[in-house]
Computed example of a mutant assay.
Amino acid sequence: MIQIESLSAAYENRTVLRDVNLSIYEKDFLGIIGPNGGGKTTLIKTILGLIKPVMGNIQFYRNGQPAESITMGYLPQYNSIDRKFPISVEEVILSGLSGKKALIGKFSREHHAKVHTVVKRMGLQGLEKRAIGQLSGGQLQRALLGRAIVSDPQLVILDEPSTYIDKQFEARLYELLNEINQECAIILVSHDIGTVLQNVKSIACVNETVDYHPDTGITTEWLERNFHCPIEIVGHGTLPHRVLGKHEH
């Protein structure tokens, strides 16, 4: 679906990514991990076309043939959302269908019906008219996830989706992502290594460059090599933890 070759990208005149090579496949479920500042968000913004590469190439494919683009849904980091913006839950999700209508046209009855279905899927019934500023963190994340999937994209990209999600919905979130993965590919960016490893099909560590692993059977040595510090994964039932060993930096 996406072939990234020899890609370098900069943010605020600083090279953040260099010589990145990565393939993303149809119905893939790729987890992206890495240290803070390693370039995870820069990579996905480059895939989305929000940042132009300094060097390298991103090639998209549709039905195995080269294409100029693919349809993508995006759930940004929670702290990038202006909660004071006067927009309702229904309008947030509906905005994900903007590319399906004429620029100055109205949303159709079918569009509104699709939004109603997604509202129910996200567990937001009764909150359709509520302003986003009146939502809990978890409710807002659900609305934004609904916006990301409402257009039935070929790829959904989620940047730290479990941030501020209430614990009651967290398990349902990953159930939903597994359901969505039956319909499209997913890229999930997260600092929660243990949870990522339990849910994705493949893993990539981003720390200026990318080290890709085709499954989730990674070793502690692989993690330490990519994070540049000692790391240990400890599982406690269904609540895995990431533990950083003693290190000077």
Rank of each mutant, 00 (worst) to 15 (best):
L127E: 04
A102K: 13
A131Q: 14
G96S: 07
R109L: 14
K129P: 06
E110C: 04
V89P: 08
V119M: 04
L158H: 01
L103F: 13
D152Y: 10
V115Q: 13
A148K: 01
G137L: 00
E160V: 11
L144P: 03
R142A: 09
R121C: 00
V89T: 11
D152T: 13
L145F: 00
L94C: 06
G123I: 10
V118N: 02
L144I: 10
K101V: 10
I157A: 08
S98V: 04
T163K: 08
K100R: 13
G126C: 08
Q139R: 02
L94F: 09
V89D: 11
A143Y: 01
L158M: 15
L124Y: 02
V119S: 05
V89K: 05
K114T: 11
E128V: 01
T163M: 09
A131V: 03
K100C: 09
T163W: 02
Q141S: 02
K114P: 00
G105S: 14
P86D: 12
L145P: 01
D152R: 11
V115C: 07
V115T: 04
R147A: 00
A113V: 08
E128P: 06
R147V: 09
D159N: 06
R130P: 02
I149L: 06
S151T: 10
D152G: 08
E91L: 07
E160A: 08
Q134E: 15
K120E: 15
R142G: 01
K129F: 01
K101G: 05
P161L: 05
G137T: 01
I87L: 10
L103D: 03
I104A: 12
K114Q: 12
E90H: 12
G133T: 14
Q139E: 15
L155F: 11
K120D: 15
Q125V: 11
S151E: 09
G146N: 08
G138A: 01
I104L: 15
Y164C: 02
A102E: 10
H111S: 13
G137Y: 00
K106I: 06
D152E: 15
L94M: 09
V119A: 07
K129A: 14
V156C: 13
T163I: 13
E128G: 01
K100S: 12
I93H: 02
I104Y: 13
V119E: 10
T163Q: 14
H116F: 05
G123A: 03
G133D: 14
L144S: 02
R109K: 14
E90P: 04
G126Y: 03
I93Q: 04
K106C: 10
K100Y: 06
R109Y: 07
P86Y: 09
T163L: 03
K120V: 05
A102V: 04
E91R: 10
Q141N: 00
T117D: 15
I165W: 00
S88G: 09
S136Q: 03
Q134K: 14
T117W: 03
E90W: 12
L103W: 12
M122D: 08
E160I: 11
Q154M: 13
L124F: 03
V115W: 09
R142Q: 05
V115D: 13
H112K: 15
A148I: 08
L144W: 05
H112M: 12
L158V: 06
G138E: 00
K106W: 04
A131K: 08
P86I: 12
P161W: 02
P161S: 08
D159S: 10
R121V: 08
L135W: 00
F107L: 11
L135G: 07
A143K: 00
